[in-house]
Write a protein that binds this DNA or RNA. Structure first.
Length: 830
RNA sequence: GCGAGGGUGGCGAAACGGCAGACGCGGGGGACUUAAAAUCCCCUCCGGGUAACCGGGUGCGGGUUCGAUUCCCGCCCCUCGCACCA
């Protein structure tokens, strides 16, 4: 194409001016409701959901925009393919981030958040996202959290919410409870003070009751494999056995040897193990320091030492206890009886045994567990081999724990000697079970979900505590429990929420008996807000129900969910759990909320995730300004694979910009008369196919490359392009660069939005190439290429190849073997 | 330690087991211009050769195959999760 010398008789094309056309089209979309989906009756519904953002004061950064653009392209593509696409947006605005920021700048979150939200909305609109703003949600809006509280009430009524004491991280300097993420290396992330443990009564949801279903359903949902794996690991299913050990001199359930007077409860120690086959090697026992039986079994002479160790452990924060360090522990003075060997084995306590996994107690098998081996070596406890690989003598000394089980068998294990490990796991359990000392069980790593936050900026937990009736759910008619607008929302050293300082707020009558009672003053976890927002969007304009039955049936489960993999376990697990519960309670017809989930990659900067603390946040505003939203969107998608992300640099943005510029010129130049070029049309249809396939699998970078390639081909043909050669390209570009696509579509004479013009039809016949370029190899080495008719057979290809001197010179005599891949290559083995 | 994902030109990256490096950036040369910008054209993995061409090349070492960036085995390195889970 001879663009450098425009024909003098052609009208001078006005140049591509992104800022002018983007302003124009964003206004048009608003006026004409282009982005508004007909939720009630639109055909072929497609719910394109994106994880909603936390509206930070810094505004949207390019990492957010990268993710949102990826979702927008997918949503727009589905719309062009004939779906009614619903692409909503909302704000996850409650939580500790907002609260801490408010404390820092000294402005109340109720004033701060709306400003941040407005800024986000401005930026999202500037980015050209196809958001239907009529259905926006804000988790801090009482009209929203009314239903968050309603969900709590449903769980409470169903017995799935309960209260118990649990450890929290406490910063003695900030006088506040910290989330685990706020504890860095055992110290408070803000002031650096060493964090302590405190025990507070908190609300929990029984998510562990759903562990098996949450695990099994993973098999049948279309999610990124990495996300499913993360969930599987988080649920952490372990099959094993609980084994009961009697304590010498203590009353026992199994032995029945206890005195008849009113003694202490039985002091049998129950352990969980995944290796019941190693019970003959259990040489000692270890309890978590907090284990309730420690006090009862400790002998008088050891009491002081044991208490000192327990006190020291309690002073440590939850995070410090979990880092690898040298083993510590003390002997309780008590002995247990190994039910397999009848041997008396010492009982120790150590912080390497965790109270919140299994039963908080273990049988230590130093020969076959690395931690137990390390502990036994340190405290000079006996180590015995009970598992040996083929060919190893039973008395071979262990220099480290032998933990492999494949191909190994039992030794020093009485009647079980010689039995393979896998078989022995069951056989030993059965044998112990007959004596009443073991049960086969399954344990999960997944813990119940603690939803209490001793903070201000969240929805109050809708409970009223009555001394007579106990905790009562706030009646549904009284919801929402409004979060009061108080000035002193800073946490103090009372260990309870700032709301507990507001008597006029928390003093209420008991909803059951009318006696003076007290509101719960904790607020709920932000993750509860986000565990159901996708249910709310389609019904966001209804204030009488959390989600409308008809709308929900039409739009859910979500057709496509895109978000960051940092939410692979928490948010995505909680959302599945809440959906499952609402299904069980009869509110929803489905139990899995997201049909399809894809994790997007992350835009990093200088090798690190963008964050304010690192000071590497890139604000998209100046790129919108300088290059236009279309170029910037396309550039972000061109950086690398959407599901992998990449390092942000602005080098290279000029490449996509000049592509759009060329597209603009090609459309301006296009002629209506004459016929399109056959070869160009072939290339066009191959491009239509590739862009469609790539966009469908979120392969945006290669889809863009294909469009560029087509543009290059168009220019190479060195003619004024025909309208039929460029018009479909405008449609292919539309999901990626919607503003320029709208403008060009209009200039091509269309009255309606390009978003309603459909996806260009793909014609297989046109796409097919008549000749193919066949690679000719000799012994696997490329020696030349020849052009041949598409359907050439092996013999003809061989004859043609051997007729080429460049190829023939490498072939001496008759080839021993010929490999022919039609349309691709011919390999001669000589 | 466990799990997942990666390692390909100067850079971002492509490649149903079949021509490695598409597409883009950067770089070099040229056209247009009084000049610059913009735009356009050509070249650009490494080594050798004026050239046609030859040889080498996808983290390292093996294997399968007519043929391996791709599949298998064993290592090394990076990123991200989880991390004393019994």
């Amino acid at each position: 194409m001879t663009r450098s010398t425009p024909r003098s008789d052609a009208p001078v094309a006005d140049a591509y001016d992104p800022s002018a056309i983007e302003t124009k089209w964003q206004a048009r979309w608003r006026e004409r409701g282009t982005n508004a989906a007909n939720l009630a009756s639109g055909a072929n519904p497609f719910y394109a959901l994106m994880m909603f953002p936390y509206p930070s004061a810094e505004g949207l950064h390019v990492g957010n925009l990268f993710a949102f653009t990826g979702n927008d392209i997918y949503g727009r593509f589905q719309r062009l393919r004939g779906h009614t696409v619903f692409e909503p947006m909302g704000f996850d605005a409650f939580g500790i981030h907002s609260e801490n920021y408010s404390l820092k700048v000294g402005e109340h979150p109720m004033r701060l958040i709306p400003r941040n939200v407005a800024n986000f909305k401005r930026q999202l609109q500037r980015g050209g996202l196809m958001i239907d703003w009529r259905y926006a949600v804000d988790t801090t809006d009482p009209a929203y959290y009314k239903w968050t509280q309603w969900i709590f009430v449903q769980l409470f009524k169903a017995g799935l919410a309960y209260r118990r004491k649990a450890a929290v991280n406490w910063c003695p300097s900030c006088k506040t409870v910290l989330a685990n993420e706020q504890v860095i290396g055992g110290a408070c992330e803000r002031c650096g003070t060493k964090v302590e443990q405190r025990f507070l009564a908190q609300w929990f949801f029984r998510i562990s009751d759903y562990a098996e279903r949450l695990l099994n359903n993973l098999e049948r949902i279309d999610w990124s494999e990495t996300t499913r794996t993360a969930q599987r690991n988080w649920i952490g299913r372990s099959e094993g056995a609980e084994i009961r050990f009697q304590v010498r001199g203590q009353k026992s359930e199994a032995g029945g040897a206890a005195p008849s007077d009113v003694g202490p409860a039985t002091a049998d120690l129950v352990v969980f193990t995944t290796r019941p086959d190693t019970v003959f090697g259990a040489m000692y026992m270890v309890l978590a320091p907090e284990h309730p039986l420690v006090e009862q079994i400790t002998t008088p002479d050891r009491r002081e030492t044991v208490q000192a160790y327990r006190d020291e452990t309690a002073r440590q924060d939850l995070v410090a206890r979990k880092v690898n360090k040298d083993k510590t522990g003390v002997f309780t003075g008590a002995y247990a009886i190994n039910p397999a060997t009848d041997a008396e084995i010492p009982i120790w306590i150590s912080d390497y045994v965790l109270m919140d996994y299994g039963t908080g107690a273990i049988m230590a098998v130093p020969g076959h567990d690395e931690r137990d081996f390390e502990f036994a070596t340190l405290f000079h406890l006996p180590i015995r081999r009970v598992i040996a690989p083929q060919g190893t003598p039973a008395d071979a000394r262990l220099h480290e724990a032998f933990v492999e089980d494949a191909g190994a068998h039992l030794v020093n294990s009485a009647a079980f000697d010689g039995m393979p490990v896998e078989e022995a796991k069951r056989a030993v359990t059965d044998w112990l079970a007959e004596q009443g000392s073991a049960t086969a069980v399954v344990h999960y790593r997944l813990h119940d979900w603690c939803i209490s936050r001793q903070r201000y900026w969240g929805p109050p937990i809708p409970v009223i505590h009555c001394d007579v009736c106990g905790p009562q759910a706030v009646p549904e008619a009284d919801l929402p429990v409004i979060l009061p607008d108080i000035a002193d929302f800073k946490p103090d050293d009372s260990g309870v929420s700032p709301l507990a300082r507001h008597e006029q707020w928390y003093r209420v009558p008991c909803p059951k008996c009318g006696a003076p009672a007290r509101r719960e003053t904790d607020v709920s976890d932000t993750f509860l807000d986000s565990a159901w927002y996708f249910l709310r969007y389609p019904s966001a304009r209804r204030d009488d129900v959390p989600f409308d039955t008809e709308m929900t049936r039409r739009w859910l489960p979500v057709a496509s969910y895109i978000g960051g993999n940092e939410h692979a376990v928490l948010h995505l697990m909680y959302a599945r759990f809440i959906t499952m519960v609402l299904h069980d309670l009869g509110f929803l017809e489905f139990e899995e909320p997201f049909r399809k989930f894809r994790a997007h990659g992350h835009i990093i900067r200088d090798g690190a995730k963008m964050s304010k603390t690192r000071g590497n946040i890139v604000n998209p505003d100046r790129y919108f300004e300088q290059w236009g939203a279309d170029s910037f969107r396309m550039y972000l998608m061109f950086l690398g694979p959407f599901q992998e992300g990449g390092d942000f640099r602005d080098a290279g943005i000029s490449g996509v910009r000049s592509f759009l510029n060329r597209l603009w010129l090609a459309v301006e130049d296009a002629r209506d008369d004459g016929v399109p070029d056959e070869e160009v049309m072939g290339k066009l249809h191959r491009t239509i196919r590739k862009v469609g396939e790539d966009t469908q699998r979120l392969g945006y970078n290669t889809a863009i490359a294909a469009m560029m390639e087509y543009m290059n081909a168009l220019r190479k043909s060195d003619r004024v392009p025909h309208r039929a050669e460029v018009e479909p390209l405008v449609q292919l570009v539309a999901p990626y660069a919607p503003h320029i696509a709208e403008e060009l579509w209009e200039r091509l004479g269309h009255g309606r939005s390009v978003m309603d013009g459909g996806w260009p039809a793909f014609d297989e016949a046109l796409a097919r190439e008549d000749t193919v370029e066949l690679a000719i190899q000799v012994n696997g080495k490329l020696r030349g290429t020849i052009h041949l008719p598409r359907d050439v057979d092996q013999q003809a290809a061989l004859d043609r190849a051997l007729a080429e001197p460049q190829i023939a010179k490498f072939v001496t005599g008759t080839p021993r073997k010929v490999v022919f891949v039609p349309g691709r290559l011919l390999n001669l083995v000589v």
